[in-house]
């Protein structure tokens, strides 16, 4: 079990805000760097949070991202207020996306978002329902 965790980031993410989308991930990257987290882990975390943050921007009505750290692990929580993922299995299938053509033209909707997150995360838990939105919890190990 991990030791007590300290919150290092909590930021709101607005739906369809492609100008500021990615700022929370950028902030977290800088915070981790300052904390002296090894660069490989920082990069991995940046990819995970950016994918999740952009998922909130693209697919949700808005949400927030929270990061907590302890000596041995980093916990990222991304919570949105809906509309939820209809088929979670499909969402984890490489190449599957429900993004519109407009979103795809911007370079998103490759159907690799959650696939990338799963690849880099040490643990991932996704809960999603129409009423309660989508809640992602990712654990990244800091201790070897």
């Amino acid at each position: 079990m991990s030791l007590q965790k300290q919150q290092i980031l909590n930021k709101e993410i607005d739906s369809f805000d492609f100008q500021s989308g990615g700022e929370a991930s950028s902030d977290l990257k800088n915070i981790l760097r300052k904390l002296g987290v090894p660069s490989k882990i920082v990069r991995k975390t940046a990819i995970i949070t950016y994918e999740l943050e952009m998922n909130v921007v693209i697919h949700s009505l808005g949400g927030e991202i929270t990061a907590l750290i302890s000596e041995d692990e980093l916990e990222i929580r991304v919570d949105d207020s809906g509309p939820g993922i209809e088929d979670l299995d499909k969402a984890f299938t490489a190449g599957f996306s429900t993004a519109s053509d407009e979103i795809r033209e911007m370079g998103f909707g490759a159907g690799m978002g959650l696939v990338n997150v799963k690849r880099y995360a040490d643990q991932i838990d996704v809960k999603s329902s129409k009423d309660a939105g989508t809640h992602v919890k990712v654990i990244i190990n800091l201790a070897n």
């Binding site: 952009m54 911007m106 370079g107 690799m112």
Partner: peptide, 24 residues
């Protein structure tokens, strides 16, 4: 031209060639 494909690479110091021009 797809950002998630770029994020699939994890090595540092890379050059990106792309046809996309938005801030993302």
């Amino acid at each position: 031209d797809l950002m998630s494909d770029v994020l699939a690479f994890s090595n540092e110091k890379t050059l990106l060639l792309t046809g996309l021009t938005n801030p993302q």
